[in-house]
Amino acid sequence: MFDFSVLEPYMPLLAGAVWVTLKFTFFSTIMGFLGGFILALITLSKNKIASFFAKAYISVFRGTPLLVQLMLIYFATPQLTSYTISPLEAGVLSFGLNSAAYISEALRGGILSVDRGQWEAAMSLGVPPYRFVLDVILPQAIKNALPSLVNESIMLLKDSSLVSVIGVADTLRWADLIQAKTFRAFEAFVVAAAVYYVLVMLLNLLGSYLEKKVRVSD
């Protein structure tokens, strides 16, 4: 009934496909974290106008489907700017912008749960805010928010499969290609699912390692 040997000729392609998945996840995570950090600081700042725009941004990106955002960025960018955006750029851009919205909320919660006294102590020693936010507040905020942040990168990894719709040869696309050629859908997709599962478990491991590391000060 099952015949996994049909996959054999396609196995060399799998490594490349997994690599593409990882690449998307990696760059989007970086972008999501940077954007999320900046958004979190803006929403917490006293600047009402900036804070309003940041909140509006978060609302829009959390309130619309990621797939819609991806297609909008990929297909509408050439129409609006005459710049031919590559699938990698479109993918990283939409996933990064999208996850920035979620990460900013996780970080905002993390920052708010840092004791007010930590800010005051740093201020009272004459440390300028940009320094102690990075050295004192952010490490504690990340620690508080770590479970949600790990969760967010797991979401990103799985959501990266959406790039297959704009023709990127990622893990899901690899399976799709096989089933089109061999008509063996089960074998192809079950292997793709297994690959995602293994990658997610690796991220989980990384998460627990980081968790242990940030808990040394407890």
């Binding site: 005051e120 102590a121 201020m123 004459g126």
Partner: peptide
């Protein structure tokens, strides 16, 4: 910051940097 570094504060709840 120039004033604060010349007049440092010790708090009721210590506020040591936890990290």
């Amino acid at each position: 910051e120039e004033i604060r570094k010349r007049a440092c504060m010790v708090f009721q709840h210590f506020n040591l940097f936890r990290n």
